[in-house]
């Protein structure tokens, strides 16, 4: 498959999830597991551009497909506007949900650069955060959207 723009090859047992392959086989531990059943969004990645929870994708399903993880969001040493905005707006506290939120928010802003607060909240409702109360996450995504436009 293509992982963050580069071709990779690996072996997976059918029962291994994409999340497991990313974390344990490919050692990309930026994608987190919070629940294992698609209800927290910490493991969000994009699969051929679609936002998915990688805990509910089999690794073998990704064969020949393109996967983007949190490790593929920054361009070299330059943080993506969303990453900068999350730091500047204090949109993370413990940071465990942050990779999922950034991957999810990027998928939204790539498709809908003009997304408003209502749209942002609806899109991100698959991602749980227990620290921030979400307020500063919304502000950060709005700020990044403005920056990206």
């Amino acid at each position: 498959m293509t992982l963050n723009g580069e071709p990779v090859e690996f072996l997976a047992e059918p029962r291994q999830t994409l999340l497991e392959c990313l974390r344990d086989t490919l050692h990309l531990t930026g994608t987190k597991e919070g629940c294992g059943d698609g209800n927290c969004g910490s493991c969000c990645v994009t699969l051929d551009g679609n936002l998915v929870t990688s805990c509910l994708v089999l690794g073998v399903e990704a064969q020949g497909r393109s996967v983007t993880t949190i490790e593929g969001i920054a361009r070299g040493n330059d943080l993506h506007p969303l990453q900068k905005a999350f730091i500047e707006h204090a949109a993370l506290q413990c940071g465990i949900c942050t990779p999922g939120f950034i991957v999810a928010a990027k998928a939204l802003l790539d498709a809908e650069p003009a997304a408003d607060e209502e749209r942002i909240r609806l899109w991100l409702a698959n991602n749980l955060c227990r620290c921030t109360g979400y307020d500063k996450i919304v502000r950060a995504v709005q700020a990044a959207a403005k920056e990206m436009r």
Binding site: R23, Q83, L92
Partner: peptide, 20 residues
């Protein structure tokens, strides 16, 4: 900005289950 900000927005920060 927080000192560990870049680590935590890029997925580099090592949490409990990330120890290898």
């Amino acid at each position: 900005p927080r000192h560990d900000g870049a680590d935590k927005v890029t997925g580099r920060a090592i949490y409990g289950a990330d120890v290898q």
